[in-house]
Simulated scan of single mutants.
Amino acid sequence: MWEERVKIDPPYDFDRVLDRLSMDPLHHVTMAEREVSIPMRDGDKKPFVVKVKALGTKDAPEFLVSGSTNREAALKETMRIFQWDTSLLDVQTHFRSSNIAGIFQEHDGTPLVLEFGLYECLMKCIIHQQLNLKFAHTLTERFVHTFGEHVDGVWFYPLPEKVAALDYSDLRELQFSGRKSEYVIDTSKLIAEGKINLEELKDQPDEVILKELVKIRGVGPWTVQNLLLFGLGRPNLFPVADIGIQNAMKKHFGLDRKPTLEEMQELSREWDPYLSYASLYLWRSIE
């Protein structure tokens, strides 16, 4: 068993992180202990769990990271997931005099936390397409509980090889639509067969990743933008087609209807180069 104390630059509000993570029923979050358990896999794809516990405050953030194996790789992955090497002070300063300054003041220190794996993120994005959030979580939970693994109290998404071997009817039994069943299984087959390599794609520019992934049946710009944002932590994405962002802007700017594309582009002009943080904070403002 290993433990590592990690101090990072403020501000960083881990309690808000836990609050958002707890919205997903698959996440193992203990609010009272200020702790979350992260599912990881080693080089041989064997599952193991890493625990992250908050010790400090928003203005003096410190964490205890612990696990049973793979110390160096686990710490590196934890840093990536929680974006501990990204300065939120720069982000807050950028938005201090912006047209959404009030939202940033209210959610000061909220980081862009990533999904726990790229394949997991892609599957979640596909499953969540065109569903209300409650049923999307229910469907994803059924998927993971039926085909995934349960290790030390933590749920792991199934590997792409396992999903690739399923029949469409296996997902239909869980109330997946016919097309969504095809999208999930066929995409997993492409990944399992090496025709799509997410690890190689992750270092490519946003435009290259978008161009490559939209070739996959059932993967459109919305899905890729969410992968870029919550899978890779790209800082300057603004998914204008997202209904949540449209509703948040309608509320914040006092509009009597959802903003048009042109209005969204105009209102968001000053948010560059941190459009992803604006997107996150707008979501948080109505959650």
Rank of each mutant, 00 (worst) to 15 (best):
C125S: 15
C125E: 13
C125Q: 15
C125T: 13
C125G: 09
I126G: 04
H128M: 08
H128P: 01
Q129K: 11
Q130Y: 10
Q130G: 03
L131W: 06
N132M: 09
N132Y: 10
L133I: 15
L133N: 11
L133S: 12
L133Y: 08
K134N: 09
F135W: 11
F135V: 14
A136V: 05
H137D: 13
H137K: 12
H137E: 14
H137P: 04
T138P: 00
T138L: 12
T138W: 00
T138E: 13
T138Q: 13
L139M: 11
L139P: 00
L139T: 08
L139R: 04
T140A: 15
T140H: 11
E141Q: 15
E141G: 09
R142I: 01
R142Q: 05
R142V: 05
F143Q: 03
F143L: 05
F143S: 02
F143W: 04
F143P: 01
V144C: 04
V144N: 07
H145D: 06
H145C: 13
H145I: 04
H145M: 14
T146G: 01
T146M: 10
T146K: 13
T146A: 15
F147A: 11
F147N: 09
F147M: 09
G148V: 05
G148L: 08
G148P: 00
E149M: 11
E149G: 03
E149P: 08
H150T: 02
V151P: 00
V151I: 15
D152T: 07
G153T: 06
G153S: 07
G153E: 03
V154Q: 05
V154Y: 07
V154F: 06
V154D: 06
W155S: 02
W155L: 07
W155A: 01
F156T: 04
F156G: 02
Y157M: 05
Y157L: 02
Y157R: 01
Y157K: 00
P158A: 07
P158V: 05
P158W: 08
P158Y: 07
P160I: 11
P160Y: 11
E161L: 03
E161A: 13
E161G: 09
E161T: 11
E161N: 13
K162L: 04
V163S: 03
V163F: 08
A164T: 04
A164V: 01
A164Y: 02
A164M: 03
A165N: 12
A165I: 01
L166N: 06
D167H: 11
D167V: 06
Y168G: 12
Y168N: 08
Y168C: 02
S169L: 06
D170A: 14
D170C: 06
D170F: 06
D170T: 01
L171K: 02
L171E: 03
R172F: 00
R172W: 01
E173P: 00
E173S: 13
E173D: 12
E173N: 10
L174P: 00
L174V: 08
L174I: 10
Q175E: 14
Q175Y: 14
F176E: 03
F176M: 09
S177N: 08
S177F: 03
G178A: 13
R179T: 10
R179E: 07
K180N: 02
S181Y: 04
S181K: 07
